[in-house]
């Protein structure tokens, strides 16, 4: 069981609505999304299909369309929608005093499960 490791990834204003920003932590690309309703989500930035960068996809509702082959991935569970199946890891996001924090501890937990 690993603990939470929160990292400060930037100011809240750096992630505009219906857009995503990415960063790399321990060689793992991580995407931080802001849905149209303002909610923030973080996922490992790899589509479960062919590893496409989800951070570059079009957001709608609380899902993103992978730019490579248009798989639709839920921002909340990381799971592929519709007929496709597969899942990317989701990470917790918190906002404190205008800064965005992501819990990268979940990467260890996901690695332990794999």
């Amino acid at each position: 069981m690993s603990r939470a490791i929160w990292i400060d990834v930037g100011a809240e204003a750096e992630i505009p609505a219906r857009a995503a920003r990415r960063f790399v932590f321990a060689e793992t690309p991580i995407a931080v999304f802001r849905a149209g309703d303002g909610m923030l989500f973080a996922l490992v930035d790899r589509c479960p299909h062919k590893g496409g960068p989800l951070s570059e996809g079009i957001l709608h509702g609380r899902a993103v369309a992978c730019p490579l082959h248009n798989w639709i991935i839920s921002l909340e569970t990381g799971a592929a929608q519709g007929a496709d199946s597969g899942c990317t890891t989701t990470l917790a996001v918190a906002v404190r005093c205008g800064r965005v924090f992501v819990d990268v501890g979940a990467l260890d937990r996901a690695a332990a499960r794999a």
Partner: peptide, 15 residues
Amino acid sequence: ADEFRPLKPVLAEPH
């Protein structure tokens, strides 16, 4: 510019 600039994370104080 934000489109092309990755975020620069820093380790935070335990929260």
